[in-house]
Nucleic acid binder design. Structure first.
Lengths: 209, 209
DNA sequence: CGAATCATGGACGGTTCCGTATAGTATTTG
DNA sequence: CAAATACTATACGGAACCGTCCATGATTCG
């Protein structure tokens, strides 16, 4: 699908991207409300007029920036699903470490915190993020659990998936979001994930026939 | 401990409180960065000078407002610990419903979201909040679990407490924080808490001797 | 009462920002 | 080339804020 092009000089997409970069960086640094269009233009090495040509509003600019970050997250999820071990514990381990490592990442924390802070003013964006982010994670986890009926006794897979996700999370969501220096090391994450899997298996393992 | 008083007209504490009220309300509405001192003064029906006399800075005003909210939370936690059932499941049920109901509350969500959004600019406040909030919750839960050694086989109580808290949370933290319309009804919360307790007990219950 | 301190409204100079306008240059299509 | 559009630079009027100063009145202490 090629872009329709009329006469005249085309928009420089690199500049649009630079504006979004600059905007996102400033949103993190100063907070969305404290960022001016002029500051964004300066940071992007672009005339203020160019910013107004690309985005009608700071609102619109913010939403575009968020959507771009979301697309990146979506792409990561697809890649993430590639590796799969042959036994259930191994599959869950890879899945859990993958998602928890990502959640401990700086950009992920920033993204989530900014979105939380702007919930009141951008509720729609937050909701679409939930759909393509956390909701899909739960769904995929649920699918894994459903495929392991021989080892697990689960009534409500979606609920069980949330339970496992909760076990993995513990209170780390709060720690990460509030900047507590928790063991963000990969080893600690793996250990935490395995602990959650162990607890989960004890609770849901099918008793020997 | 009475307040030391020199000569002259004393500060009107009611006005200081009104300023904090107005500030907090505006922080929620518009986002911290977008709120001006003048707007706060107007909302509090107070002169701008009065605001500057009470608080040196918007920064200071914000931190004061957050601390005041935190004190309220602290007070709630003390009250919360009063009721205790006679059996373990009942105690956990009360504890879980209490904390999860609070977390589903509008003010709690707002508080958390604002704090998350301002993490970069107020890291100290976020950390002290974690200490007197979530950290204490985990500690108290851990204490309950430790006191039930006859029914539970637990190596690391703190870790187990986090697991149980995670089971209660599931993905609700994300849903609440992102404004997803999850069943915030008291009945649904109770059911969710009981589900978490059931899973937890299956995983940690001491096997019959 | 007199001194000290605070509250208040008004006003200020200075800054930042908004959103638009203008003029000139660059780039692309037909 | 001509038309159309994008980009830069600059400027502008208007608005919002900032942080402070002032004059006035209120309140309390000694």
């Amino acid at each position: 699908m090629t872009i329709k092009r009329g006469p005249g000089r085309p928009k420089d997409e690199a500049k649009g991207s630079a504006i979004l970069d600059a905007g996102w960086a400033l949103f993190l640094e100063r907070g969305v409300g404290a960022v001016s269009i002029e500051a964004i233009a300066a940071r992007a090495n672009v005339s203020k007029m160019t910013v107004y040509k690309h985005f009608t509003d700071k609102h619109a600019l913010f939403e575009e920036a968020v959507l771009r970050e979301m697309r990146a997250i979506e792409a990561m999820q697809i890649d993430e699903a590639v590796g799969a071990a042959d036994d259930l514990e191994g599959t869950l381990h890879m899945f859990g470490v993958g998602i928890m490592s990502y959640l401990a990442t700086g950009p992920a924390i920033d993204f989530y915190n900014v979105l939380a802070g702007e919930l009141r003013r951008h509720p729609d964006v937050a909701q679409t993020f939930y759909r393509i982010g956390p909701a899909r994670t739960i769904e995929r986890l649920s699918a894994i659990l459903m495929g392991a009926g021989d080892r697990l006794a689960i009534d409500d897979p979606s609920r069980a998936a949330e339970a496992l996700f909760g076990l993995w999370q513990g209170a780390s969501n709060l720690q990460l979001s509030l900047g507590i220096d928790t063991g963000t090391a990969e080893a600690a994450i793996a250990e935490r994930v395995d602990y959650g899997i162990a607890v989960f298996m004890r609770a849901f393992a099918r008793t020997a026939p």
